[in-house]
Design a protein around this nucleic acid. Structure first.
Lengths: 111, 111
DNA sequence: GCTCTATATCGTCAATCGACGATTAACGAT
DNA sequence: ATCGTTAATCGTCGATTGACGATATAGAGC
């Protein structure tokens, strides 16, 4: 039972690796980190604000938003003709769980 | 002062975005997540074990290890003819700080 | 000096990413 | 019905990634 968290069976572990990698990949671009930061500061915001804030073309920005949305990191609520974006608390929890697991291990194990 | 954490000046924020993105990018591949997970389970390990564990070619594995090392996520101590890899506690702290910041915000702000 | 072992680096190739402008879609307002 | 606004999607192009095998490097041991 004490191994429950640590030692997942191999195939499951691979799946988990895949999922985490997807999350990391979605965050692996400064523009997308910028969007996340923006959503932290103002707790919600509209697409055209994002375009203005990060200074890329509208189409490019939309792409970045789609990537974040596909990874479940942000939510987009339609408010015609706008879309209102916000962080997905579930994704934040997932991230937190992950990093907690890592930091627990390193605290215990790395001297 | 209460804004110190939240509201960093724009150019600094961009730098921070860049740095975080670099970190995320280094983790944005299942093989590399697998390596990190491996280093969590055994607290340290040698390159050739990694090759065997993740099942990619030696050259490919070495590349992944270099990427993680370049991002500061792992450390490689030379023990001729091997290299002994371990997680870098500083990187873990960095990640933790980041996610803590995010989760604090979402807890406070998103109802 | 060679040979073995463990890593790192090089060169190549297909696949993916990230940027852009142009176009399309959906609706509210006139 | 037409116009204006906001987002999403398409098509394209150069740059980057990830895979591999081949080669290079560095030291231990004979």
């Amino acid at each position: 039972m004490n191994q429950a968290v640590t030692h997942i069976s191999a195939p499951r572990a691979r799946e988990a690796d895949e999922q985490i990698a997807v999350l990391a990949k979605a965050l692996a671009h400064p523009a997308r980190i910028g969007i996340v930061r923006m959503l932290l500061e103002r707790q919600t915001c509209v697409g055209c604000d994002v375009v203005e804030h990060i200074g890329l073309a509208q189409s490019t920005t939309s792409q970045h938003l789609q990537i974040l949305k596909a990874a479940g990191i942000i939510l987009g609520e339609i408010e015609r003709p706008r879309v209102c974006y916000s962080l997905n608390p579930r994704a934040v929890d997932l991230l937190k769980t992950l990093v907690d697991a890592i930091s627990t291990h390193t605290t215990i194990s790395s001297r």
